[in-house]
Amino acid sequence: MLTFIGRRLSAMVFVLISISIMVFLIFFATPGVDPAARIAGRGADQQTLMQVRHSFELDRPLPMRYISMMKHLFVSQDLTSYVNRGAKVIPQLSQAIPATFSLVIGAAIIWLFAGIFFGILAASSKKKWIDPTIGFLGIVGISLPVYWLGEVVNLITQSKLHNSVFKWVPPLGYVGLSVDPWQWFLHLLFPWLTLAVLYAGIYVRVLRNEIMVVMSEDYIKTERAKGASEKRILYKHATRMSLITIVSLFGLDFGALVGGYALLTEVVFGIQGVGKLTFDSLQNFDLPVIMATVMYASFFVVFMNALVDVVYAVLDPRVRRV
């Protein structure tokens, strides 16, 4: 077991290093990204330009530059931005993390509740219209482009109906939980709902189908034959079995979202989280910030992947041989 975890960990490090090298190479292969002239200012003298280039170590060979950047990022942790000179990258990232966590955790609570409730309802309801209706809503949920939904929500709550129904909706942005819990809640309410729609759609569909599959298994049929009530079968066996799938799915989704996959939601609602930071740094071609956010994001994604693998390995020893 330990060797399996060890192998997984070293694979993780390998993946992270590969990603950082690729990001670095792609960045410098892009034409026009040399930050020296942008930092030096418009119309800068050629000598000034060279001095700026030197001060950012941009006149050194690529491998040296890469090693130096990694050293500043991980060892001395004083890597600074290419755009906002002097702005350290790591504090920027750590300041953005609470906003992303607030967004993702809140949305996750909504989608888990909605997903589990409607998923079970769809699989168990006696009424004929409920399952297709929920199925239809689930399909709409997974078919909505999140950025478009966000913009439409903004259009309605910030403008069209802002003077009547949605007078209470605060302007876009993020307010820290410790600053003002009520404002924190109000600012995040619509971002939560918007982000949750997609995942609620996915979870409803997955849960419903899992329950249906379990319900048709032989051992359930045996239970039923023994005279157990439908309710008891549903809650004791079917739901419990299918929740395992939900938990592992949740692990992957949560890792990806916390790592910055909520980028579009954050951009549309102006929430200054990791996704927005990534987006802004990409727009600015600010490599140090790009590198930090990418490392952070890939860590979460890869770590959650590995964690799910390890959990599976604990549950099912055959996986370890693979």
């Binding site: 993946v15 690729m22 990001v23 980028l263 990418v294 890939s298 994604v301 890869v302 992947n305």
Partner: peptide, 9 residues
């Protein structure tokens, strides 16, 4: 790597 790679970059 593909899974964790920043697509937008």
């Amino acid at each position: 790597i593909i899974w964790a790679f920043p697509v937008y970059l």
